[in-house]
Amino acid sequence: MIKVELFFVPKNIVGREEIFLPAKNLKELLNKLVRDYPELKEVLFKKGRKREVSDHLIIMVDGLSARKLKTPLKNGATVIIFSVISGG
């Protein structure tokens, strides 16, 4: 099971800050998120096409930045997903 922590826009769309999902890689994880929350498609993917991660999004897998959809996920991994911000 993967622990997904969401911040900013993805969190607001999902309405929760934490979700647990089974997934073998990032592609599977993001697709499952879009399946459950279709509004996320536009936020997670470039031009909403599911081929590349949006430039406006940062994903961390166990503390490290990950952008490639084939990034493998180990069972028990923590994935942090947030939309880019400019800081206050």
Partner: peptide, 22 residues
């Protein structure tokens, strides 16, 4: 923009939990 609602609703306090988590 889907981002507008988040910032309208919560403003910069959205950053707090995120800053803690990173």
């Amino acid at each position: 923009q889907p981002d507008l609602e988040t910032w309208q609703k919560y403003g910069t306090p959205s950053v707090t939990v995120w800053a803690n988590e990173i």
